[in-house]
């Protein structure tokens, strides 16, 4: 187990919280994962740190990223969000909610013809900006939209 734990720590650059990693079942021998879960970015408590963990710090504002989300979400537990990137060569889309305990919601990576579009539903703790970062052609872009939340959907 120790050897695997080392591998995991090295792979993610994370320190501590090994118990979570073990509970997460990521360390089973022989298990093939597409990519290692970016624990550093997902555990970050600020959007800036999460963006750093994903190598998109310093992303440039772009009007070519369209975020479709409600202006007012009655229930923060289910907020539909649709992101379209019109930037050519979009390879990944990341979604953050600034005010959530862990702002990073999800990271989507595209290949083999998948378009720069993703639609999902997220949880929001409170009224916040929904921030999107896009990687395209080795550069990072960002856009955000405020969503007002009447009832929070994280914790309780």
């Amino acid at each position: 187990m120790n050897y695997l734990r080392r591998t995991f720590l090295r792979g993610t650059g994370a320190a501590g919280t090994v118990a979570i990693a073990i509970a997460a079942g990521l360390l089973k021998p022989g298990q093939v994962l597409a990519a290692e879960w970016n624990k550093v970015a997902f555990d970050a408590t600020t959007t800036a740190d999460a963006m750093k963990g994903l190598n998109v710090a310093g992303a440039v504002e772009s009007k070519d990223i369209l975020i479709k989300a409600p202006d007012i979400a009655e229930n923060g537990a289910v907020v539909p969000v649709e992101v379209t990137s019109k930037i050519p060569g979009t390879t990944s889309i990341m979604i953050f909610v600034d005010k959530n305990q862990n702002p990073l919601i999800a990271d989507f990576e595209f290949s083999n013809g998948a378009e720069g579009f993703v639609s999902t539903r997220i949880k929001m703790a409170s009224t916040s900006h929904v921030k999107v970062a896009v990687k395209a052609g080795g550069k990072a872009y960002t856009a955000s939209k405020e969503v007002k939340v009447t009832i929070g959907g994280c914790g309780g």
């Binding site: 862990n102 919601i105 999902t120 949880k123 929001m124």
Partner: peptide, 24 residues
Amino acid sequence: KTVLEAQWGAAVAKNPFLGFRVKG
């Protein structure tokens, strides 16, 4: 052929919905 690889945190809503588009 892999077209989408996603990593999610716990803040994706319960019973997650995912929509994506594949050209070609």
